[in-house]
Structure formats: structure tokens, C-alpha cells
Design a binder for these strands. Structure first.
Length: 581
RNA sequence: CAGGGGGUAGUUCAGGUGGAAGAACGCCGGAAUCGGGAUCCGGAGGUCGCGGGUUCAAAUCCCGCCCCCCUGACCA
């Protein structure tokens, strides 16, 4: 039996919140001695944090093993060549931590492993008889986040479980996809997280499908739209607009095109105020840079453009907004005054909302001017129409039309049917029954393991600290000896501690030579589910047992081990903290 | 990357018009205590982010760099 007493535990708790903690999970994980920052977005896991991490790790591992996924380990350092084959050296580019060796060969610290695993399978699998195969790993990942924050939530180094499956049929992929879905639901249940499974696909295109597993939290960075009427749940980025298009001035006569002075009036808001028109009458012109050059995207002034949709429509993940300098270089017009009128050599793509605006307002293509009374086809042309708006709360549900509701969450899991994107790019083929070479059909499945710690703390805490669900608690019980100078308290504490240990429970004995207040506050902060207080009640032959979540306290006889253990196990059974959401 | 704030003890922070480095908490030793970070006495602990400059003298002024934090994410 391994014994570790609190007096020997490396758990430096903090009374004050660290100055950079903005959210409770970050504050409590640091104060409770679970983690310590090394540098922005990079953390040490202290012994308590490692214990919690191990529990989550084990849950994830067990659920993967249960569905027949095989654990392996892939390298953190990956050569640039692999990423150049799939084009992601540029697509993923800025988010990757890049480095080079002494010979100036380029590498990345892997943000994910599709390239590596596909390359592996390309060399090692050659026949349909060897398929399907699902492999996974739980390992460090690296992303050079624009701005790391929120402790483990948006970190630059983090621990992720990533699984990859290889198939010779879509049906087989679908089976593993469904298995993964169930496994993820089990992980959510075993960590007691309140969650939603949301559609992350923009439509049923060629069997491509994707779901996110989102742990609910107001501070979450995923925006979820859901429909109370039909049960539709999806990320806002992927929700299609299927509502009506408002007609703006469509009953008016087409007026004569006119260029007006709008000194220093740039944003839609400013233009609307300055000219005294509705924002809906303005056509917003956004310039993007992609693989095939520049693209101008148009959308009604009051709407937001959904970049994900644009990238998908144009099939170009490298798409990004042009910089002000690039805009100036292209049109010799500063941002704020560009528009589609007179544009010739730039591809123009427009949201359907633009179709229904007559006598619109657009940038004047000359500093400090705008065009008014602009009309489609007469004054500008559109090369392609698409649905590209960011759907918001209140917009109609794409399935049933009822108004959508919005909520926020933390993305923990993401499962994706990749299809043959990577296998084709990397020429990873197997031979089928007919002797033909076919690209592997693939799926990939991620789970943010380190991030799960934060997600749990976000849902399970109060103003004193963390309230761990037992399945992930660093220890289930803490035995608190109130007065270390009283021999009988020390003896009773030891006795209970050893009895719990030998009955297979995870327990920590707080034998520190310090005041009770410190012990109680640390216990609450760290969040042990059940505290056994060995103190003044000992005179009556009793110890006090306190539940962290409910504050319920009972006194129990401690003399008889068997009975005490039974009582404690019963209390453990009844320990059910409520998620805060 | 842009804009703003900051870097002084383990932590949270004062100090800043140039003139002997501070508080609280924590830590160490001791006393008295022992059911909610309690009290008293004594003590240790700093390259004031790094480098350069100005000066008799720099934490303080100037220049360069690094790091951290906040806001934003080019929505024209």
C-alpha cells in the first residue's frame, strides 16, 4: 500500500488568485496546486493535477479500447515535407510551431497527426483484407495560438487524444464513426459533464460529416445554436440560413448611380448614420486573398459573413482577409471605400441577401466616397451566388423554421469523416477485391484531454473551490486531523486512513502541523469529495464526515472499521454534485 | 499581428519629481494556541526583466531587446 501523507505532498496552494486568472477554472487549478504556468499557454502539472489528468486519461483510454481502437504513439516532431504534400504547411501555417535543425531542415511540433498516420498506413497497409484499422494516441500537441488564455482551455501545449480510422468502404467508416460517437458520450457521462452534441458539418455533402462534443459553459468559445422545437443543435459556423430574404427597396424605381462624398466614413455603422440609410441598404464588400488570388465577397450591411462558408464554397482553406496594404495595392483605395462597382479582374462572390437590395450603397472605390443608388447587373456583376451569412439567435431553424436559441460551450470532442482527402493527397492506396488501387477512406477523432480538466472545474465549483466528481477527483477522501498535538486524534486519523486504504479507496491523510482553518480551506479549495474530520467529536467516540458538494455533515462512530468503511462507502455512493450550468 | 498596460521578495502589490529597496500574505526559529487561511516575539529573503547610455549618483531619466497581461482579430 502506497502511503503518502499531506505533510509530504507537493501541493503548494495559494491564498490569492494569480493575477492572470480570468476564469474560475484557471484560478482554482492554479490556487489548488494542480497546475503552474511555465510560459504563456504552457503548464506544469503538479502531483494533484497529474492525478486528475490520469483519471481523465484512463477514462478516455478505456472508452477507446472498448471500441477496438489500438493505442500507439506518434512523434511530436514532424518533418515539413509531409505537410507540404497535403498543402497544410500553408493552410495550417501560422498556427503551427515551426522549427529547424542545424541543417536548416524544417519541422513542426505536431498540432495534429493526419499526415504522419496516413504516411505510416500508406507504407504498411496494402490490402482491403487488412482493413478497417483504428489507431489512437494520447499525447502532447502544439498550436501557436494567436492568444493563449484561460489556463488549460486555450493553451499552446496541450494533451489530446487523437484517433484515426482507415477503411475500404463508407459503411465501415460509418460504423466506427458511430462507435466513436457512443464512446464520446460515455466519456462525457463518466466525467459528469453537461454537454451537447452538435452538428459541425455544413450539409450532407458527399457523406462528409462531423460532430462536436461541447461541454456547456458560459465562458466557452464555441457558439452553439439549437432549436427547442425540433432538437436541431449545431455550431453557428455551420448553420445554414434557410429563411426568407428581406426585400430592401425592391418596389422602388432604379435611380441613377451617384458617387457622394463621405469623408472618413468607413464602417457600415458610420455610413448608415452619415447618409441616413438603413444598414440593410448597404452592401458590405470584403476582400479576401486565396490560392487563386483575390476574391471580393459581398453581403448585406447588417449581416455578418461566415468565413467558414466562404472557404467551403470556394474550396480554399487558405483564404484570409486582405490586409489594408494589400487592398491599397490592388485598388489604390483604402479599406472602407472599396466596392464592386467597376471591378473587373477580381472574382466577385455574393451572399443571396445582396440579390434583394435595390438602390444600394457601396464603397466609392475612391477615398472618402461611396456610391448610392447602386443596382445589381446594371452597376456591378456577381460571378457566383452563395449562402454565406452567419446565422444568429432568433434566425429560423434550418430544419423546422422555429427561432433558434444560442448558448456557449467548450469544444472537447470532435469527430470527423475525412473521406479520402488525405489518402488521395498522399497517394495512400490499398488494393481492393478487384485488384484496383483505392485511396483509404478515413475518419479522425479528437478529444481534448487536458482541456477536460478546465471544463469540469467550470461546471463543478463554488466560491470556496473545486467540487470534483468522484470519477476524476485527485483523492476521494481526505482525513483531516484537527489537532496534531493530540495523540488520540493522530491515532484515530491513522487508523481511519489505513482502513480506507486497505479497502481500496483513494484517501489522503492531512497530518500537517498547522491550524485547522488552513486544512479546511485547502480541502475545500482542492475539492476532495468527502472529508473526515478527526477532532473534538472524538471524545464521544465519533468523527465527522462532510460532503463537499452539499455541506452535509454527519457524525459516525469510528471504532469499528467495518462499519465505518461501510458508512463512508455509502456516503460516497450518495455523493452527487450538480453541474453549474 | 495591431493597440493598451505591465515586469520590484515565493505570492499579491506599493514606491517612481534621481540621493540607504518597502508592505501584506507566505517562509524559517520561538511562544501561546488548536473546529474555518487566528495571535504574539524574532529572523531570512531582491541582479528592481536583460543590455547599453546620461549622471557624482539610476528601480526611477533615455535607447534597444526580451517576457507577461488585457482588448481586438483586418467584417472596410
Amino acid at each position: 500500500m502506497i502511503q503518502l501523507r499531506y505533510s509530504n505532498l507537493f501541493a503548494p496552494t495559494l491564498k490569492e488568485a494569480p493575477s492572470d486568472a480570468e476564469i474560475k477554472s484557471h484560478e482554482y487549478l492554479v490556487r489548488g496546486a494542480f497546475i503552474r504556468k511555465v510560459t504563456a499557454g504552457v503548464y506544469n502539472y503538479l502531483p494533484l493535477g497529474k492525478r486528475v489528468l490520469d483519471k481523465i486519461w484512463r477514462i478516455v483510454k478505456e472508452e477507446m479500447d472498448n471500441i477496438g481502437a489500438q493505442e500507439m504513439l506518434m512523434p511530436i516532431i514532424q518533418p515539413a515535407e509531409l505537410w507540404k504534400i497535403t498543402g497544410r504547411w500553408d493552410d495550417y501555417g501560422p498556427t503551427m510551431m515551426k522549427l529547424h535543425d542545424r541543417h536548416e531542415r524544417e519541422f513542426t511540433l505536431g498540432p495534429t497527426h493526419e499526415e504522419v498516420v496516413t504516411f505510416l498506413m500508406k507504407s504498411e497497409l496494402s490490402s482491403y483484407k487488412q482493413l478497417p484499422v483504428t489507431v489512437y494516441q494520447i499525447a502532447n500537441k502544439y498550436r501557436d495560438e494567436l492568444r493563449p488564455r484561460y489556463g488549460l482551455l486555450r493553451a499552446r501545449e496541450f494533451i489530446m487524444k487523437d484517433a484515426y480510422s482507415f477503411h475500404s468502404s463508407w459503411k465501415s467508416l460509418d460504423e466506427v464513426y458511430q462507435d466513436m460517437r457512443k464512446a464520446y458520450e460515455k466519456i462525457m457521462e463518466r466525467t459528469y459533464l453537461k454537454y451537447l452534441v452538435i452538428e459541425a458539418a455544413s450539409g450532407a455533402i458527399g457523406g462528409n460529416q462531423s460532430h462536436e462534443f461541447v461541454s456547456l459553459a458560459p465562458i466557452g468559445e464555441s457558439n452553439v445554436l439549437y432549436c427547442e422545437k425540433c432538437g436541431y443543435q449545431a455550431s453557428d459556423e455551420r448553420t445554414l440560413y434557410k429563411g426568407k430574404y428581406e426585400k430592401i427597396g425592391m418596389d422602388e424605381e432604379e435611380k441613377e448611380l451617384e458617387r457622394v462624398e463621405t469623408p472618413n466614413v468607413k464602417t457600415v455603422e458610420q455610413v448608415a448614420n452619415f447618409l441616413g440609410v438603413d444598414k440593410k441598404r448597404i452592401v458590405k464588400s470584403l476582400l479576401y486573398v486565396g490560392r487563386k488570388g483575390m476574391v471580393m465577397a459581398l453581403i448585406r450591411g447588417d449581416l455578418e459573413l461566415n468565413e467558414e462558408k466562404l472557404k467551403e464554397v470556394l474550396n480554399d482553406q487558405s483564404l484570409r482577409m486582405a490586409t489594408p496594404e494589400e487592398v491599397l495595392g490592388k485598388f489604390e483605395v483604402p479599406i472602407g471605400f472599396i466596392g464592386p462597382v467597376g471591378v473587373k479582374d477580381v472574382y466577385i462572390i455574393a451572399d443571396h441577401s445582396v440579390k434583394y437590395i435595390k438602390n444600394a450603397v457601396v464603397g466609392g472605390m475612391k477615398e472618402d466616397t461611396h456610391y448610392v443608388n447602386v443596382n445589381l447587373n446594371r452597376d456591378f456583376k456577381v460571378d457566383e451566388w452563395a449562402e454565406m451569412r452567419m446565422v444568429k439567435e432568433g434566425d429560423p431553424c434550418p430544419v423546422c423554421g422555429a427561432p433558434l436559441k444560442a448558448t456557449k460551450g467548450i469544444e472537447l470532442g470532435h469527430i470527423f469523416k475525412l473521406g479520402t482527402k488525405y489518402s488521395e493527397a498522399m497517394k495512400a492506396y490499398y488494393m481492393d477485391e478487384k485488384g484496383e488501387l483505392k485511396p483509404f477512406i478515413m475518419g479522425c477523432y479528437g478529444w481534448g484531454v487536458s482541456r477536460t480538466l478546465s471544463a469540469i472545474v467550470e461546471q463543478y465549483h463554488d466560491d470556496k473551490g473545486i467540487i470534483w466528481p468522484i470519477s476524476v477527483a485527485p483523492y476521494t477522501f481526505v482525513v483531516t486531523i484537527v489537532n496534531m498535538n493530540k495523540k488520540e486524534q493522530v491515532e484515530a486519523g491513522e487508523k481511519i486512513y489505513k482502513a480506507l486504504l486497505s479497502s481500496g479507496e483513494e484517501v489522503l491523510l492531512d497530518d500537517r502541523m498547522t491550524t485547522p482553518g488552513i486544512k479546511f480551506n485547502d480541502a475545500d479549495l482542492i475539492g476532495f469529495p468527502i472529508r473526515i474530520t478527526v477532532g473534538k467529536a472524538l471524545k464521544e467516540g465519533k468523527v465527522e464526515v462532510k460532503m463537499r458538494h452539499s455541506n452535509e455533515r454527519i457524525k459516525v462512530d469510528y471504532e469499528e472499521d467495518a462499519k465505518l468503511i461501510e458508512t463512508l462507502k455509502n456516503m460516497k455512493e450518495s455523493y452527487k454534485p450538480e453541474p453549474k450550468v
